[in-house]
Nucleic acid binder design. Structure first.
Length: 597
RNA sequence: GGGCCCGUGGUGUAGCCUGGUUUAACACGCCUGCCUGUCACGCAGGAGACCGAGGGUUCAAAUCCCUUCGGGCCCGCCA
């Protein structure tokens, strides 16, 4: 036996009892005759004391160094009033050691575990991840992650959902992200793909009559990495039968609320303050409205600075950039940057440079000052035209209006991004608030410029809104106007989940494949198993998948998904710890029937 | 595929712009010694980097230039 108690569990009431503890030497304070050690295990810290009552023991203690692993026996003692350390939970007590066992020594670690203020280069953190994870923050993050997953699982379990595993070695499907491929040894020249999500399997489970399925499951997408994107990531994948969109959203709201309740203390601790309770139901906003007001399908509603469409006001003005944009089917939108008039010319130039980077031709602006309107474009307008714009924008002295004029999607994209920049720059974002939001009524299709065809916005199994019978007619007329029974779940401007009601009718599914440009034969080859299944009494069904890593990151207030994943990869998809990916033996390649170019 | 930032003892940084008094500085850590109430203990002393790698410019390069490798943020990409 190495221990009878955990370090962090000791409390004042334990005084007088003899305990055995095991853990790591966190810090040592050697006073010569008296040695203090902060002993650390997963539960926390406790100060242990070596005095000179036992000379032999004291001599052993002198040799202890950072990160040595020890087991001790000792007596829990109340500290004197002056000696209490209010900074740690166990600060009222200490353990006077009576015997010491060094279980392992340690080299001086390249990461200072006890130093919470500095953070080594990420390369070093990942190479010595097992040390990095010893630090308080990382340990807390992993514990927090565990609790979130458990809360989600508990909530779904209580609701009658079954956790069912689905294959990792599966079939490559077109559409969507690039697949990770796994060569088959047994089937020469053939490949499995790792799932981008268990999408088709969970639908099949509905056909199987499982009714309510969930899985905390790894998904794989071979795309470039970002602060919030890893090639393998975890989803809470959910599917249910006989449900409407509202049923799914209601269910997720209940689950999220229960999860937030279960995590309340942890979240408050992360933020160092009480976080207000969530307001229910979460706001639901159509995709059209989100694009109109925020220029994005994942609006950060923690602050204002909304986009306002001023096309009607400017379609006849002399300024061709504005009127021309409207006349050619585009749009002119404006943001009232409250207090923006204080920006210097250089700051406005920088903002414009950013807008150009985002794809704008320029960024017009108009400052409302005590001395009147200041703007490089004012001279192109009649005074009453400017007045009307300022009035519509509710402009006041001290504000700056910025404008985007172009094709609708460019204006939305540019101003949407500029809005986020300004939100940060003007410090308008309450970092300790949680704005959950549903975006609904997505377009079913969008046109892909690269592929020169209509592609699914969500995925090809998404059910359209409206009458399914005249789907082809609607598609022929105006593909972009067809809305989907699809919804995204947004938190603070991040997409943390998305789902849809699926097509459960083989004929409709077949038609959608056709619209997407799959020949009958190809659809059969790629998705035949799904089409078959839909012919055997497939119930209406739908579901959603939540990105666990992002959710944990946002709730914990971290800036990178890597801080809530035990062993993540670098931006170049490399693992400094293991050295993966790496070359393999010729023998292995040969068995897999693979010849390198 | 593209843009921007970074790389200096074990760790985090300064120095670089404006090349030469730099024997490359500081903090943490590490080592030795002293110390019985510290808790980021204190005090005294010490070791440790030729500046990511390669090339170039120059009398002289951590410093300027080019190439390359690695890390980060972003665009593209991510149904």
């Amino acid at each position: 036996m190495y221990r009878s108690r955990s370090c962090g569990s000791l409390i004042l009431k334990d005084q007088g009892s003899e305990v055995q503890l095991a853990g790591w030497v966190h810090r040592r304070r050697d006073h010569g005759g008296l040695i203090f050690i902060d002993l650390r295990d997963r539960s926390g810290l406790i100060q242990i004391v070596f005095n000179q009552d036992n000379k032999n023991l004291h001599a052993q203690a002198e040799k202890l160094r950072s990160e040595f692993v020890i087991s001790i026996k000792g007596n829990v003692t109340k500290r004197t009033a002056e000696a209490v350390n209010k900074n740690i939970p166990t600060g009222e007590i200490e353990v006077v050691v009576t015997s010491l066992d060094v279980l392992n020594t340690s080299k001086t670690p390249p990461i200072e575990i006890a130093d919470a203020t500095t953070e080594p280069d990420e390369n070093i953190r990942l190479k010595y991840r097992y040390l990095d994870l010893r630090k308080d923050k990382m340990r807390e993050n992993l514990i927090f992650r565990h609790k979130i997953i458990k809360a989600i699982s508990d909530s779904l379990d209580a609701d009658g959902f079954l956790e069912i595993e689905t294959p990792f070695l599966t079939k490559s499907t077109p559409e969507g992200a690039r697949d990770f491929l796994v060569p088959s040894r047994v089937n020469s020249g053939k490949f499995y793909a790792l799932p981008q999500s268990p999408q088709l399997f969970k639908q099949l489970l509905m056909v199987s009559g499982m009714e309510k399925y969930f899985q905390i499951v790894r998904c794989f997408r071979d795309e470039d990495l970002r602060a919030d994107r890893q090639p393998e990531f975890t989803q809470a994948d959910i599917e249910m039968s006989f449900c409407s969109e509202k049923d799914v959203m209601d269910m997720i709201e209940k689950m999220m609320t229960e999860t937030m309740q279960a995590l309340e203390k942890d979240i408050d601790q992360y933020r160092g303050k009480k976080i207000p309770k969530l307001a229910l139901p979460f706001p639901r906003m159509s995709w059209d409205e989100a694009m109109e007001r925020y220029g994005t399908d994942k609006p950060d509603t923690r602050f204002g600075l909304e986009l306002v469409n001023i096309s009607d006001l400017v379609k006849e003005v002399g300024f061709k950039v504005f009127s021309g944009a409207v006349k050619s089917g585009g749009v002119v939108k404006s943001i009232n940057v409250k207090g923006g008039a204080k920006f210097s010319r250089a700051e406005m130039d920088k903002l414009e440079a950013q807008a150009k980077q985002f794809g704008a031709k320029g960024l017009a602006w108009l400052a409302i000052t005590e001395e009147g309107l200041k703007s490089p474009i004012a001279k192109f307008f009649k005074p009453e035209e400017l007045e009307a714009i300022v009035k519509l924008m509710k402009g006041e002295v001290g504000d700056t209006l910025i404008f985007g004029a172009d094709k609708t999607d460019i204006v939305n994209d540019v101003l949407g991004r500029i809005r986020l920049e300004l939100g940060e720059k003007l410090d308008l974002i309450d970092k300790d608030s949680f704005h959950f939001l549903w975006i609904t009524d997505f377009p079913l299709f969008e046109y892909s410029e690269t592929e020169k065809r209509w592609v699914s916005r969500h995925h090809p199994f998404t059910a359209p809104h409206g009458n399914w019978a005249d789907l082809e007619e609607r598609f022929a007329k105006d593909p972009a106007s067809i809305k989907a029974q699809a919804y995204d779940f947004v938190l603070n401007g991040s997409e943390i989940g998305g789902g849809s009601i699926r097509i459960h009718d083989m004929n409709i599914q077949r038609k959608v494949f056709k619209m997407l440009g799959f020949a009958e034969e190809e659809a059969r080859r790629r998705f035949g198993f799904l089409l078959d299944a839909l012919e055997y009494g497939a119930p209406p069904h739908g579901g959603i998948a939540l990105g666990i890593d992002r959710l944990v990151m946002l709730l914990a207030g971290m800036d990178s998904i890597r801080d809530v994943i035990a062993f993540p990869k670098t931006q170049s998809a490399f693992c400094p710890l293991t050295g993966a990916p790496d070359v393999v033996d010729d023998k292995q390649l040969k068995e897999l029937h693979i010849k390198l170019a």
